[in-house]
Every structure is written in structure tokens, then in C-alpha cells.
Design a protein around this nucleic acid. Structure first.
Lengths: 225, 225
DNA sequence: TATGCAGCTTTCACTCGGTGCAACATACCC
DNA sequence: GGGTATGTTGCACCGAGTGAAAGCTGCATA
């Protein structure tokens, strides 16, 4: 019901200055690729929202986006990744930000600020994020895959933290612990924000959770928190 | 190299009182099933250790264990699960233990004790656990799958914690946060223990990590911790 | 000991996810 | 305008995973 035609040829329909916020002169190829990627993500979310993950095949998503099945796999390694909107560049960006944080900052704070800068969509497109999270939450398999991608992020963060601290990422337990627990808390915060349908600003929800983590998980006094 | 024949017909070769520590009268079927399960796990770990995850097919694992491919899938939902030794019963057991912890115990402590009781192999078979963890760590895909199963465990823990606290598991953020971060810390501890090749007792490593978490992740003072 | 039942294993057929490769199309640059 | 880099497609293929029906195995009866 949702679509079927409106996005059919998104691969060739160039984005008319829509989400474009790319600084350095974008070539035609880049535009085309971004359009295809967006179309695939959009199609994936829409179809899965409608029929559930197992009710949709990659072939259908590709068709909906107006590209071949093979092309789908040129953009996303798995069906799930198209739904959760996985971007390989996101991890690199995260690491980049983390390495730029001031040296005096403690690891937990550095990671915290980094996440705040990177996860929260600067363009204010919280609606899309919320919708995607709702679709993810609706399917156990998608949640699992989401957690899995957090795992990838975690590995990258450990490497970056270790670099910051001048330690060996393979043996720096503190870095591993910080990355794992802060990411876990962030994930829970995202889910809570989603559960709440975005009424409380995401930044606040994140801060709340990370504060609790930083305080050693004290049991909330008031009932129902 | 490792095997090829020694375990070939483990499905029919009954376990001669080996790992058997089942209290309530075990029927022949149970013995047979346990033997098959063990053979599959063993074959999976051995073959993957030898050739890597992608160098081994389910068909080969099944053949090595002396059963058909279809039977493999009657025991494990995925190839990865056979390697990581996933047991659906483990989660139930975890929940069970958690619900039996004394009421006055704070959530973090309750989860902590539960994990200590369930994760640590009572029969002292740390060698097998260590080997399995080493195989898992050697492959990114296996690590991801391992994290994924921790995610399943997490959901079960949240439900159990919420029940304990008399809250709604869907909205109890504190339960979600505790489950997620404690499990994350435990996972990191397991990996650290493995990295260390089991020289320091697992229980100690776990305690160290959970203490750090409970203290709010203070930056270790001494260099290299 | 024979017989029936229950539960496990196997075979078969099939769908779908995912990848490598070679041919084709498109945008860019000279 | 022609060459080149890059993106897209079709094709062939492999392996994971599932459903269903038939066969086998152990157990509990008479």
C-alpha cells in the first residue's frame, strides 16, 4: 500500500537538493549513488514496516527502489543492514571524532561526547530515526542485527580508545569495558527514547542513562523510573 | 588433521559415563540426543579451529559428527551457534536462578551472582570453555554472533529483572540498563580471561570488571590496567 | 517376545541470501 | 568525440535454512 511507484526510479531520479548537505563539490556519480542508497533504505524500511522482515525479500526491496538485486548487494551486505540503515562510514566518523576530543578528557566523557555528536542527527531528522527504530524494535531478528552492528562499533571504539591511551587494544581491558558498557547504555537509551515515541529529547534520554552508568548503576529511589 | 574418524559415529556411540551429570533418570533418547549434540559441538569447534568459519560447511560438520545435514539443524539454528555452543536451556536456567535470588538483593548484585553461578562451569571444564572462546575470538563473524546471543540473554534478563521489581519490562529502563551493561561487562571479562589464556581465575576477572562497572568506570590510576 | 507408539533421523525439494565474474551503461575528462 | 573510470546488470553458482513425509529406534505395553 505504502508505495510501489513513487520511488520506483529513485536510482536515476536525482535528489532535488533534498537531504544534500555535502560540503565538497559532489560529482554526478556521488549524487546518483546517494540517491540509490537512500531509495534502498527507504524501500527496505517501508516494506518491512508493512510486511515484516521475513515477509520481504531482497529482490522486492531492490525492485521497489528501481534497481537490480545484484545492485542491492553493492550497497548493503545484508537485508537487515538496509533496514537499520547501516553506513560503513559512520564508524570511521565516530573514530575520527573520538580521536579529536581533548586529551585531558576522561575516556567515558570522551566517548560520551563523541556519541552525542555523531549519533544525534544534526539535520534534526528525528522522525526518520524514530520510525526506523520502531521498525527495528518490531522484529527480534532486526534487534539482534542492530546489536551486532553495535558490536562492530564497539571494536572500533576500543581501538580508538587504546590509541588515545597509548595502549595495546588487544589487552586494554579498561578501554574494552568503557566502549562496551557505554555503547550498551546508549543502545538502551535509544530504545527507551523510541519506546517513549520521542517525547523526551534524545539527548536528554542519553544523558540520563549515561549518568546512571557513570554513577555505578544506583538503584533508583522513587518507584518506576 | 585433528580428527576425521574418532568422532564419526558419536551419534550412536553412547557416552560412557563421561560428561554425564544429569540427576533425574535419563532415558535412552536423552543420552542419544546429548551425545549427538556434543558430537556436533565438538566437530564444529574442531573443524573451525582448523580451517576457519568460512572454510567449513554445515554439511562437513554434520558428516564429522556422523549425522545428516538436516539433523544438524534440528540441534542448532545456525552454523555459528554450534561453534559458540549455544544452548537454549541456558537462558531459561539464568532466568530461573535470577528469580530465586533473595528479594533484598539489589538488581546489579542479583544479576552478578546469577552470572557467577551459571556461566562458570561447575564441572570445572575451563579448558573447553577457553578453547571455544579462542576459536570465537579468532573470527570476526563468530564474535558478532556471540554478541548477538548475549543480546538474546539480555532480553530474558530484562524480563526477569522487571518481574522481580514488579515493573513492565517494556518500559523499565533501569532493568534494561542493568541487564545490558552487566552483560557487556561480563562479555568483556570473558574475552579478557581468554586473552590472558585463563591464567587468572575467571571468577576473579569477572569480579574485577563488574567492580569497575559498579564504581562508575573510574579511570585506573596505575598505567596499564 | 511381539506389537504399537512416540520421538528422532533422513531424504527430498525448495527458497532465499549472498558472491564472483564478465558484459554493458553512464558520467567524467581530455 | 573518444577513452576511461565507475556503476549496474545478468548469470551462474554455493551454502544456509525450512517444511514435509517416510523411515528408523527405543520404549512400554500385553
Amino acid at each position: 500500500m505504502t508505495t510501489t511507484t513513487d520511488r520506483a526510479d529513485a536510482a536515476t531520479a536525482f535528489d532535488p537538493g533534498g537531504t544534500g548537505h555535502a560540503g565538497h563539490a559532489e560529482t554526478g556519480w556521488d549524487r546518483r549513488k546517494r540517491a540509490t542508497r537512500t531509495a534502498l533504505r527507504y524501500a527496505a524500511v517501508a516494506l518491512v514496516e508493512e510486511r515484516g522482515l521475513s515477509g520481504v525479500t531482497v529482490e522486492e526491496i531492490a525492485a521497489e527502489a528501481g534497481v537490480s538485486t545484484r545492485t542491492f548487494f553493492n550497497y548493503f551486505p545484508t537485508k537487515e543492514d538496509a533496514v537499520i540503515g547501516w553506513e560503513p562510514s559512520a564508524i570511521a566518523e565516530l573514530v575520527d571524532h573520538l580521536l579529536r576530543r581533548p586529551d585531558h578528557e576522561r575516556p567515558v566523557e570522551a566517548v560520551r561526547h563523541t556519541l552525542a555528536e555523531v549519533i544525534l542527527p544534526g539535520d534534526g531528522d528525528y522522525r526518520a530515526l524514530l520510525r526506523r527504530l520502531q521498525v527495528i524494535r518490531s522484529d527480534h531478528h532486526l534487534v539482534a542485527h542492530y546489536v551486532l552492528r553495535f558490536g562492530d562499533t564497539e571494536q572500533a571504539l576500543v581501538a580508538a580508545l587504546a590509541q588515545r591511551r597509548g595502549t595495546d587494544p588487544a589487552t586494554d581491558r579498561y578501554a574494552a569495558l568503557v566502549a562496551a558498557s557505554v555503547l550498551a547504555a546508549s543502545r538502551v537509551a535509544l530504545m527507551a527514547w523510541c519506546e517513549d515515541e520521542g517525547r523526551v529529547p534524545l539527548g536528554e534520554v542519553m544523558a540520563e542513562h549515561l549518568d546512571m552508568l557513570g554513577a555505578g548503576l544506583p538503584e533508583p529511589t522513587e518507584a518506576r523510573r
